[in-house]
């Protein structure tokens, strides 16, 4: 087995799943959370936590596939997140309002929201709230503490879905336990 061929197989190999199946799965998950929790705020929080846990893992896969080196600045990070959305969700968000420590990812329509209509009782539900969680989790693994939140949502009548990401601080490797 030559090492060259296996490593090229990794980057080429991206198993695909039917997008409708995925959208339905996600919808069912959200709906079940809405059923299980009393307040919509709690559902938003849970979705964010689920996303965070996904982010912790998906970043490893992303780095293993792409071999990207470390980001030089936030703009670089933003572009890589954009590439990751293309890779995992086949969604192409555009970047806007990029400043030194903030940027926005703008989607034409809400990801996973293809069939969704929010009932009146869930007017405050952030349907795609896993995504900010994924971004937060993934960035944390590469030593970046960020805050991410949905600020506009097509399901609520906005023109586009927008996720705002704010850089807070750089994290440092923890010292080994018991060593000073």
């Amino acid at each position: 087995m030559s090492r060259q061929s296996t490593s090229s197989r990794i980057t080429a190999d991206s198993k695909k799943v039917n997008s409708e199946l995925f959208v339905l799965t996600y919808g069912t998950l959200v709906q079940q959370l809405v059923k299980d929790y009393e307040s919509v705020e709690d559902v938003n929080k849970q979705l964010e936590r689920i996303g965070y846990n996904i982010g912790l893992r998906v970043i490893e896969d992303f780095l293993a596939r792409t071999n990207y080196p470390r980001c030089t600045d936030l703009r670089d990070t933003a572009e890589k997140i954009q590439a990751a959305f293309k890779m995992y969700l086949n969604a192409t968000p555009s970047l806007s309002n990029v400043t030194a420590d903030e940027f926005s990812l703008v989607f034409e329509s809400t990801p996973f929201g293809e069939f969704t209509e929010l009932p009146d009782a869930c007017a405050n539900l952030k349907y795609c709230n896993v995504l900010p969680g994924v971004i937060r989790g993934a960035c944390e693994m590469v030593q970046m503490d960020v805050q991410a939140y949905v600020i506009a949502d097509t399901l609520k009548g906005d023109n586009a879905t927008e996720i705002r990401v704010r850089f807070i601080k750089k994290l440092h490797d923890a010292l080994p336990a018991g060593e000073d």
Partner: peptide, 18 residues
């Protein structure tokens, strides 16, 4: 180094992370 990277890609990511 290449072997270690391969272990990361083919083994660690596939069978631990996933």
């Amino acid at each position: 180094k290449d072997l270690l990277r391969l272990i990361y890609q083919m083994v660690y990511v596939e069978y631990v992370v996933k």
